[in-house]
């Protein structure tokens, strides 16, 4: 299977202050990362806070700077070197690659109706010719995200966390992207609703032929929805493998430590977590 996104030796370094002489110190948020995202796959990116998983996701979308290395995007229609896009190409890339945010309470403007929130990407990028066409696209994607069409005229405050996340998903998908980065898309939700959103993402993937980069700190969620997982720590990918293989037989000590830290649902399995020692 061909890769939709190919990340090669990608680094995102942020300068930390300036020096008159010698090298200025840098923060290596992402350091020499290589990652393949095959077409139609659901790739998981796990790591703890500060591991660089969000920065990597954003660099792929060109929402974070690329210091060195390349991101290649090839969906069969276009073949982009994401770091070197010109203005017109970048505009086109934005319709093909989209982002779903973590917090459905912060991501939606309280002063816009649900219809306007979902329609905004189409209007900003001038992708539709008339208001009728925009409304048609909004209704179509809202129905696919299982939103009640009568709710389109309401404001976000009237909705629960799960419904808000469905609105965020509809907005991300309204431009018809091929590639979606879901950054902690279920982290702020209650478990009963989290399951619903995960099932929705999976069914949308099949229906709309999407490829996902699913960023999460929750290994058990990743194990359930992803077919390939990469584990990040301090800006570096420690291990990547097919999901089942990674969970059955973790190779890296950090992955093992992460797995052992998940609280087991079995009250009799009260083992202590293995602490990862980077110097060992």
């Amino acid at each position: 299977m061909s890769n939709l996104v190919t990340v090669t030796n990608l680094s995102t370094h942020y300068p930390l202050g300036q020096r008159f002489f010698g090298e200025a110190p840098v923060l290596k948020a992402v350091d020499q990362v290589s990652l393949d995202i095959p077409k139609g796959s659901f790739v998981g990116l796990v790591g703890e806070s500060g591991s660089g998983k969000t920065t990597l996701g954003r660099a792929i979308l060109r929402a974070a700077p690329i210091s060195s290395g390349t991101v290649r995007y090839n969906d069969g229609e276009v073949d982009y070197d994401v770091g070197a896009l010109d203005k017109a190409q970048l505009k086109d890339y934005r319709t093909r690659a989209q982002l779903i945010f973590q917090d459905p309470y912060a991501a939606l403007s309280p002063r816009m109706t649900v219809r306007d929130i979902i329609a905004e990407p189409l209007e900003v990028m001038k992708l539709t010719k008339s208001r009728e066409e925009t409304d048609e696209r909004v209704r179509e994607i809202a129905a696919k995200c299982r939103l009640n069409l009568e709710h389109l005229r309401r404001f976000p405050h009237a909705f629960s966390g799960g419904q808000r996340q469905r609105i965020s998903i509809a907005r991300a998908l309204v431009t018809g992207p091929k590639f979606v980065v879901a950054d902690e898309a279920v982290a702020a939700l209650d478990v009963s609703i989290q399951a619903d959103i995960l099932n929705l993402l999976k069914s949308l993937q099949n229906e709309l032929d999407l490829t996902f980069l699913f960023i999460s700190h929750d290994l058990s969620v990743v194990a359930h929805v992803c077919d390939h997982v990469a584990v990040m720590y301090h800006g570096v990918i420690m291990e990547q493998n097919e999901t089942r293989a990674l969970f059955a037989n973790p190779q890296h000590a950090y992955t093992r430590s992460l797995l052992s830290a998940i609280p087991s649902l079995d009250p009799d399995d009260r083992h202590r977590a293995v602490v990862y020692d980077p110097t060992a």
């Binding site: 478990v191 009963s192 609703i193 989290q194 399951a195 619903d196 995960l198 099932n199 929750d218 290994l219 058990s220 969620v221 194990a223 359930h224 999901t243 089942r244 969970f247 797995l259 998940i262 649902l265």
Partner: peptide, 17 residues
């Protein structure tokens, strides 16, 4: 609540909201 929880020891179990 338990059925909605992703479990590591059974990756094929469906998540039931």
């Amino acid at each position: 609540l338990i059925n909605a929880l992703p479990k590591l020891d059974d990756l094929d179990a469906p998540l039931t909201p």
